[in-house]
């Protein structure tokens, strides 16, 4: 029985989602402008840097021309942008390789670490958040509140060093360096990634659990929850069947924020565990002022962030009948 409300679910949701995509693209374009603009503030340029102080003016000029550094800034921006989109973000002068090759070697590692950490943290965070919300202000909730409140404020290097001290130095269970040999078995991979995953998860779990709790509690104070209880529905069922569908929007939004942290925020974790991911690559790029590489990394992280937000928005639109059909 297709009532008037169901007809054209996609027809009404698609334009909304399309709007979000367009707005995301615009933001990404603006982000690229900002990144490019900041990079331009660097005194000197790559050619000078590469050839050193002793180079003749002619040699520098020749190299400038080779890399198109003598062109006006708007033209360089367009070239760079086109390069980014077509998969050629330039040449890393420091690594003496194409930026795309440098990144290709690192990106899969980052994605693997992020995916595994997400797999661990999302279910745990949801459970903690829902439990806390259901026992609002009871002892369990207050305990969890102080715990997650403290966890979100911990510096990553404290969590990481403690993990190394306990699991690697004291118990000798896990390796302290997350180097993965090319022919490693899945088990070995998991073992070497265990501590980075643990460290990342601690912080992300706390963030997501707090947001989940807040989203659910916000719904619990709505009159429809009281109404559901007065219909004789048991509290646990009220949370699962009435509250969660309404809280899903803010919850996936929080997840998107936290998961984006798993990529870009892993800088310190990757450094401590010597893990060859994208974030530690970016730190190298900063130290060596390798601007093409730095710009490319920054754009990847921003794209990932915007993509996650877009997915969250889409889920929220699909979950909310007020947004998806009027």
């Amino acid at each position: 029985m297709a009532g008037p409300a169901t007809r054209g679910l996609l027809a009404t949701a698609l334009p909304l989602i399309g709007k979000r995509i367009a707005s995301g693209m615009l933001t990404l374009l603006l982000v690229s402008l900002v990144v490019f603009f900041i990079a331009q503030l660097l005194p000197g340029d790559a050619a000078q840097e590469m050839l050193g102080q002793a180079a003749t003016a002619d040699a520098v000029a020749a190299l400038r021309e080779k890399f198109g550094l003598d062109r006006p800034a708007p033209e360089r921006y367009v070239r760079w942008l086109v390069g980014m989109v077509t998969g050629d973000p330039g040449y890393s002068l420091v690594a003496n390789m194409a930026v795309s090759d440098v990144i290709a070697a690192r990106l899969p590692n980052s994605l693997l670490l992020a995916a595994l950490s997400a797999l661990v943290s999302v279910p745990v965070a949801l459970t903690i958040g829902i439990l806390s919300a259901m026992h609002r202000d009871a002892r369990l909730d207050r305990g969890l509140n102080v715990a997650t409140l403290s966890m979100v404020a911990l510096p990553e290097f404290l969590v990481a060093t403690l993990a190394v001290l306990v699991f690697s130095v004291q118990l000798r269970w896990l390796p302290s360096i997350a180097l993965i040999p090319p022919d490693a078995s899945p088990w070995l991979i998991l073992r070497s990634l265990a501590m980075p995953i643990l460290t990342l998860s601690v912080i992300v779990i706390a963030q997501m659990a707090r947001m989940t709790r807040a989203a659910i509690i916000q719904q619990l104070s709505q009159p429809y929850v009281e109404m559901a209880l007065l219909k004789g529905i048991k509290p646990a069922r009220v949370v699962l069947t009435h509250v969660l569908p309404n809280a899903i929007g803010p919850i996936v939004n929080a997840m998107a924020l936290s998961l984006s942290y798993l990529l870009g925020g892993a800088i310190i974790v990757e450094t401590i565990f010597n893990y060859p991911g994208l974030a530690s690559l970016m730190v190298n790029a900063v130290t060596s002022r390798d601007m093409p590489l730095l710009q490319a990394c920054a754009m990847i992280f921003c794209t990932a962030y915007l993509l996650l937000v877009l997915i969250a928005d889409t889920v929220a639109i699909l979950a909310n009948p007020r947004l998806r059909n009027r």
Partner: peptide
């Protein structure tokens, strides 16, 4: 726009 650049990434670019 600035918010959609993750804060650590933003500060790294600036520091560079």
């Amino acid at each position: 726009t600035l918010i959609s650049i993750p804060s650590k990434i933003f500060s790294l670019v600036l520091v560079a």
